[in-house]
Write a protein that binds this DNA or RNA. Structure first.
Lengths: 209, 209
DNA sequence: CGTACTTTTGAATCGCATCAAATCTGGTGG
DNA sequence: CCACCAGATTTGATGCGATTCAAAAGTACG
């Protein structure tokens, strides 16, 4: 057992930024849902009746090709699944829990109404989207760099302040975010430190020069 | 000279989706600006007084490290530069035109007002952001694939409909979007075609199987 | 016709992924 | 308290695949 903390409707996900900026009228409509690994949250062609927020676990947006190969469009952890579906009638892809996951389900129409009526919610939602956008743009630029050392340096300068970052995740997860294997991340970090390019102190990284 | 088309204030950028969904009151405040290659649009620490829309050319959001190396956070072509700055007092990075570029400049406060007052503009802006987000998430997933053939297949399934895409850009630009050199894109396309994985007809690509 | 650009192919190299395995770590239960 | 286990961390050896440099052929445009 990972956590003994109950995941009831009220209070669940209260630590998520999205929940704090939601009007109570909408928050009260949240229904806790649990999905076992590999179970579908929604499927291509389904009408968009609900908006889902991932609290624990991971949900993947996927499309399948005829030969069974799947293409991952998005992985959500601690965030909404397919925000863009808010403006669609039908889902254009399938959402699958890749591990046992706890979600919150909101009625789509109530969500749209809240967005329309509450100026605070709207502003917060807008801000949240903008920041997410900024972050993703930086990550795309980073992933398009070919050398591991360049991605690491880019990460430190883009995500950190004044050439310094404190990692908020284990290195293995960081490697995945950088589009690298954990082995090459470890090796490159060591090499960069040996060459005096960076200074490493636990989870604190500092770019030198 | 690339284009002889005049870039006056009125009418310029009228073909951009962003301009169509903007209330006239805001559109009228647009000022046409031209920046020569390598000239700064704004710099770190400047107050956020204006919002810029790239009409032609390219603007890069960058941060500099002490040794002069620059980290590109975003490249904008035909879109807004640093939307997230709307919610900041000061810029946290520098914007530079990487080639001769025509921009439209909007007063930041008028922009915020329009967003607040016009429900249509707000809705359209929200939709635009959501779709951009969806696109970027898919691109991040794609760029985190290690093999060139996987990125190409991912692109066809994510950006296309029913395993089919029509490329809207030269292959060299497509290669950059895929995070590949143009050489390896050409080679991989040929190999995939030889192996019967895809069918290529000019700019029309079809995934087989 | 000439210029600038894209498209295409070739050969050599380098960096990362991969497979394998040892060590370290935090947390569990005996 | 210690043995134990699952996971993260670290190092090693090898091969593949993409980059790189080079150059030719094709294409759009003035």
């Amino acid at each position: 057992m990972k956590k003994a903390i109950g995941v009831g409707v009220s209070g669940s996900g209260a630590d998520l930024p999205w929940m704090r900026l939601m009007p109570p009228s909408l928050r009260e409509l949240a229904k806790a849902r649990h999905f076992a690994a590999h179970h579908a949250v929604f499927q291509t062609g389904n009408p968009v009746c609900s908006i889902y927020l991932v609290v624990t676990g991971e949900v993947r947006l996927v499309r399948f090709s005829r030969n069974g190969g799947e293409v991952i469009l998005q992985r959500s952890r601690q965030g909404f699944v397919a925000e863009a579906s808010l403006d669609s009638q039908l889902y254009h892809c399938t959402a699958v829990a890749s591990e046992p996951s706890d979600l919150l389900e909101f009625p789509a129409d109530a969500f749209r109404t809240a967005l329309h009526d509450s100026s605070d919610f709207r502003a917060a939602w807008l801000l949240q989207l903008s920041q997410e956008l900024r972050k993703l743009r930086a990550q795309c630029e980073r992933l398009s760099l070919h050398r591991a050392a360049d991605r690491i340096a880019h990460y430190i300068h883009a995500e950190g302040v004044d050439g310094c970052v404190t990692l908020q995740q284990p290195r293995k997860a960081w490697a995945a975010e950088l589009g690298l294997t954990h082995e090459s991340l470890y090796r490159t970090l060591r090499r960069m430190q040996d060459e005096g390019l960076i200074h490493i102190n636990g989870n604190l990284l500092r770019a030198l020069g």
